[in-house]
């Protein structure tokens, strides 16, 4: 499997580290215990297109949001994760 890093270009899998599901969003302050439990512990086991976080540890060290089909490993999109390229945030 190869991932096309938006900063570095196409690279082998060995340069990347997998974090997991990119979907969970931190609940607002004061959210119920169930919502927080869900956010911290519960993950969907998706067979198909999944949004994931990958880290280009052996390259530019940017966090990426990758849409990957867990059945075929086909990657349909790669984009910088929120906050990557700190200079652009709020620019």
């Amino acid at each position: 499997m190869r991932i096309v890093c938006p900063f570095c270009g196409e690279r082998e899998l060995g340069e990347f580290t997998y974090l997991g599901d990119a979907k969970p969003a931190r609940p607002a302050a004061g959210a119920s215990e169930d919502d927080v439990f869900d956010y911290v512990y519960l993950r969907d086991n998706i067979a198909g297109a999944m949004s994931e976080h990958w880290y280009h540890a052996g390259g530019c060290r940017a966090w990426l949001k990758v849409t990957r089909n867990t059945l075929t490993h086909e990657i349909s999109s790669v984009e910088p994760a929120a906050g990557v390229g700190a200079a652009k945030v709020g620019a």
């Binding site: 390229g85 700190a86 200079a87 652009k88 945030v89 709020g90 620019a91």
Partner: peptide, 11 residues
């Protein structure tokens, strides 16, 4: 050298 938040153009 790493740009600070929002300072890319300035850097």
């Amino acid at each position: 050298i790493m740009a600070r938040r929002g300072k890319g153009a300035e850097l």
